[in-house]
Structure formats: C-alpha cells, structure tokens
Design a protein around this nucleic acid. Structure first.
Length: 561
RNA sequence: AGGGGAGUCGCCAAGUGGUAAGGCAUCGGAUUUUGAUUCCGACAUUCGCAGGUUCGAUCCCUGCCUCCCCUGCCA
C-alpha cells in the first residue's frame, strides 16, 4: 500500500488535465479510470506502464480504477487469460475491490442502445460483403461511397437487426453500421461497423449471443456505464476519439455521462519486442521456453525473472507520461530493479564459476566461523556464520596468472581479503598437463581476521567471496541476459535473427547452506554477482533453483570484458 | 496525397511571453571488507529549421523539415 513518504509521480499532461477538471468540479467530485485489457493474451511490460498510470492516478486522486475486460471478440478470448491478467495486476500491487467488470456484462444494454440508434436513424444494417465494404470505404484521396443499403427504413433495419440477433443469418451476412459520413477524412467516421454476426461461443456468455459489438461502440459505452471520468488509452486511438464522442453524444439521453478520452504514448523498450504478434512467435517457435520465460517481457516472465512490483512502479514514475514517441533503454528498467532489490534483498554467497583455493599455511583441521551480515544496510537483520577452512571455492574470474592492467584481485604476489575473513597472499597456482588452471595457492595473514582488533592494518584493494569446500551445496542457477543482442530487434534483419544466443545459461553453482531453505520467489543478492530469485516453478525448499534477475552494476567488467 | 499526433541535453521529461526543473546515463572526487551501495561536484547561452510579432519568444504568428498513427465485420 502506498504511504505518504512515497515520492509523488512527476507532473505530466494527464495530471494537468485532471487538476483542471478538479478545479472546475467537472465531474462532481468523482474520479474513475479503468484498465481495460482484452483477455486474449498475456500482459507485458507495456501494460505495466498503463496499469501503474491508471491505478496510480486513482490512488493519488482519491478515486477508483476499474478492472475491465474488453471481451467482445469471442473467437480470441479465454478465461485462462482473464485469470492470468487478474493475477498480474494483483502482483503489481493493485486492488480494484468490487470494481471488476466485463464488457460482455453489458451486451444487453449495448444491444438496446443499438436499437435506439436505429430508431433515431443513426445506424443501419448493411448487407454488403466485407470486400464490397472495403471497396466503398475509399482511400486517403477518394471519399467513400454510401452503401446501397444505407437508406433502409427504420422498420427494415430494426427487423433485420433483430433477426441478426435471433440467429437467422450466417456470419458476415449483415452488419450494423453507424450512419455518420462516408466522405470523412477520418476513416473511423466512414460509417463504422458497430455489430457483426459471429456464431461463436463466448467465454462468458456461451452461445447466448451470435452478434457481437465492436470495440469503438463498446468501449465508450462501457466507460459511460461505469461512470469513468478519464478514459486513458494509447496514441493509436487518438483518431478514434471523434467516434468515441459521436457514440456518446447520440446516446447522451440514455447514458447521461461522457468520459474524457486521453491518449498517451505507449512504452517502447530497447532489447525486447512488445508486440503481441512477435511475442507469440517467440513462444510458438520455442525461442523461449514458455509465456512465463524469465527472458520474455511478459509480466509473468518478469515475475519469474525476479523483477519486483516496486521496481515497475519506480520505472513508471521515472519514465514519465507524454505523447512523444520515445524509446526507453532497457538499462533504465534494470536499474530500477537494482534500486529496489539493493534495499530489500538479503545478501548471500554463491560461487558460480568455481576454482579451488588452498591456504597452505592454514591448519588442516581448523575451522573458524566468519560472520557475514545479512544486509549491510540493515544490521537488524543479523549475521550468519560461514566456516572458514583450508580449502575453499572462489571464482575463476578472481584469479589471473598475469594480471591485466588495473586488475587487483588474485595473482601471484598479490594480497586480497577473503570477505569477512583473512587477508591472503597468493603464492602460485597449479595447472594440469593441458595448461588448465587446477588450484590456486595462498597463505593467510593470521592477524587480519575481520572483526578482530587491528584486522585492517593490512590494506588491500581486492575483496573476494569464497565458500568452504567442506560445507557447500550444489545448486542449479540460470543466468539470464537480455533476449535480444541489439537495441532495436528487426531493423537490420528478421527480429528472430537478433535473438541473443547467450540469453540463458544454466550452470551448477556452489551455494552456502543458508540458501538451501530459500522459499519460492525469495530474492537475494549473491554478493559481487547480482540479484537472484528462487524460481517459483522449479524451486523447492531444500532444493532451490535460482534465476539471475539482474547483475550488479560492474564498471570494471564493462570496460575490461 | 487526406486526416490525426509528436519534435526541449546521450535517454526520458517539466516549463512557458521575462531570460531552460528534475531523473537516468556520463565524467570527476570522497567514503566503502560487494570494482556494488552511499555521498559530493560537473553536465543545454539553448528548446527540429527559417522568417516574423515583441523591449524581450522554447513559449505567439507564418512557412518548411523529420518521425509516428489511420483504408479489420481486431482491440
């Protein structure tokens, strides 16, 4: 739940419009938005922007955001998607209370209003084929032509429309059209179709209906019925607004409510694709494992990836809302997740690419507890003991036989601190016959144990993590990276060819025992690596599987990769 | 071509007739037992271009350029 310390979202043109409305008491103190997905697919990062916007405004203006499904196309929509969408919105932290609606709940009223339009001479039944309608629609240069059925009598129209509803005609035989202006420069006003015949089973109304209303007719009326004040949608609906207003103007006596449609620029993110068509292609071609693949920019994918609701909220506030087409770099989203995770994820140790380190001057059977804080920013979260002994696992990357310029970790003759333990000095390394690194050797400095007086009398630049060979657990870790290797997939070649071949790497890692009890979806920072989450599908207490959410910022690695 | 939109720092984004907020990124520097975090400092004589109005224009006017959306019985 939001609290007063939360940073208020920055000013934007929508908030200015609302402020103006409020100052003029345009809506009589009411404030209502809605999030209106079609239940025909999974929500993605772009929807998160819309969700945070609509629910965020409702929260800040003391109103309500309705959860509404735009389910007017029976052939594409399924209950499975309804459930997944609800789940995703809830996961993002929003609560719509009792305000859950379906456009299909309004089919009766929509139908009655359509009859009213017919009676007013504002709608007619057209019996042209789809092809004929297309031909008569005209082009940018040529105005459309009236349908030969445009002047049917009200009586005939009503009769036909009722018989359409009664199921007397096959799909496509007739449609109901608004009578507006076939010569309008705005195609949406060239007598748009309001209803079509579809003998298809609807996920909620079953076979009750065989005629279904279209978006332009349904959406504005749904908004009015729910007394929405601000109907916020994306830019491509901007030239639908005259139609939105036309329908509500015709129906003003019946509805008595006319929401304001406001359009904003949809999210464009680098290194991913957000179009439904492309996401489907990625899943169906098995380029990714499933709709909740952590690499996919779906919200279910984000959740498995370990992204957080707070991170999305931060992201939404950070990128703002405007009408300018813009591209947000993926690093902005990643940084928002780091920001949240840095504050909230406990620290643990994992060695992802192990090499053995032997401390030659450390007693064979000695074992000393070293204490690692669970969160450096929150000492109240306590510490845990990690037993130090002679043989340890360290990261392969922390050793270099011949160090490159600036490298200050392990190499013969150099000293580093074993995090939370002693300073050691590297002596040499063993290699096998093929020149493969086998073991790194070092000697420890007995007076330098962390936490003991004078322990930092020996200054070192490097600080590496480690795990005792004697007490580690093996664990599957999935290293996820960006799905595409170029910022704008599909510009140079087919977007499928831009897929990053290294976007998923499965490794066996050593983890500290404290990690084996991780609960599904529990998040940690693996020190010096990044943020990881126990996979909510494959992870089990006692046998966790971790997904890398995002790496730590790495200013050295970035320039020395 | 007709209609609808948009162009302010590398990326977002406020602002508005009175002389360019903020965030992110970047670059310095400090702290640091995560090459992380944190902290401090630097960072648009300029608001797509060209004219005009004005004492004064990113904001008003005119013309131009560039980009996005629109001819589903999808949403």
């Amino acid at each position: 739940m939001p609290n007063s310390t939360e940073k208020h979202a920055p000013a934007n043109f929508i908030r200015h419009m609302i402020d103006e409305d409020v100052s003029q008491n345009k809506w009589g103190g009411r404030f209502a938005t809605r999030f209106p997905p079609e239940p025909n697919g999974y929500l993605h990062y772009g929807h998160a922007k819309s969700i945070c916007l609509n629910f965020g405004l409702a929260r800040d203006y003391g109103g309500q955001c309705h959860m509404r499904f735009d389910d007017t196309n029976p052939e594409k929509e399924e209950q499975e998607y309804v459930d997944a969408i609800l789940d995703a919105v809830r996961w993002l932290g929003f609560d719509w209370g009792e305000h859950q609606f379906f456009a299909s709940d309004y089919f009766d009223r929509l139908y009655a209003l359509a009859e009213f339009l017919i009676q007013q001479g504002m709608a007619y039944v057209d019996s042209q084929t789809a092809e004929a309608m297309r031909e008569h629609r005209g082009t940018h240069l040529i105005p459309g032509q009236n349908s030969p059925f445009r002047e049917r009598s009200v009586v005939d129209n009503l009769d036909l429309f009722r018989r359409m509803k009664a199921g007397e005609f096959p799909d496509g035989a007739h449609v109901l059209r608004a009578k507006i202006d076939m010569a309008s420069p705005n195609f949406n006003l060239r007598d748009p179709v309001l209803y079509r015949i579809r003998h298809a089973e609807h996920h909620r109304t079953g076979n009750l209906w065989c005629i279904y209303p279209l978006y332009d007719y349904t959406h504005c009326i749904s908004d009015a019925l729910e007394r929405i004040t601000h109907s916020i949608c994306t830019l491509e609906f901007e030239d639908h607004r005259p139609l939105y207003d036309w329908v509500l103007d015709q129906l003003a006596p019946q509805l008595g409510w006319h929401p304001q449609q406001i359009e904003f620029a949809r999210l464009n993110l680098t290194y991913v694709v957000l179009s439904k068509r492309k996401l489907i292609q990625l899943v169906e071609s098995q380029a990714v494992d499933s709709w909740d693949d952590p690499r996919l920019p779906t919200l279910v994918g984000a959740r498995r990836r370990g992204f957080t609701a707070a991170g999305f909220q931060l992201f939404t506030d950070r990128i703002g809302v405007s009408k300018a087409d813009s591209w947000i770099d993926m690093s902005v989203l990643e940084e928002c997740m780091r920001e949240d995770l840095n504050l909230n994820a406990e620290r643990r140790i994992a060695v992802l690419n192990p090499i053995k380190l032997i401390i030659d001057n450390y007693p064979e059977n000695l074992q000393e507890d070293c204490f690692a804080p669970n969160h450096p920013l929150k000492p109240e979260l306590g510490k845990r003991a990690i037993p130090l002994s002679k043989e340890l696992w360290i990261e392969r990357e922390d050793y270099m036989e011949t160090p490159s310029k600036g490298f200050f970790r392990l190499y013969p003759g150099n000293r580093v601190r074993l995090r939370y333990a002693y300073v050691i000095e590297c002596t040499h390394a063993d290699y096998d016959a093929n020149g493969q690194l086998l073991t790194v050797h070092a000697e420890y400095l007995p007076d330098t144990k962390s936490g003991t007086p004078g322990s930092d009398s020996v200054k070192v630049k490097g600080n590496i993590h480690w795990l005792p060979v004697k007490s580690v657990e093996a664990c599957e870790v999935r290293l996820y990276d960006r799905l595409f290797s170029v910022p704008h997939p599909g510009t140079e070649q087919d977007f499928m060819l831009d897929i990053n071949p290294h976007s998923k790497q499965i490794i066996q890692a050593w983890i500290e025992p404290a990690l084996t009890g991780a609960q599904a979806e529990e998040r940690f920072q693996f020190e010096r690596h990044g943020y990881f989450v126990a996979d909510r599908v494959d992870s089990h207490v006692g046998k966790p599987v971790f997904n890398r959410t995002v790496g730590l910022k790495d200013t050295w690695g970035k320039t020395h990769a």
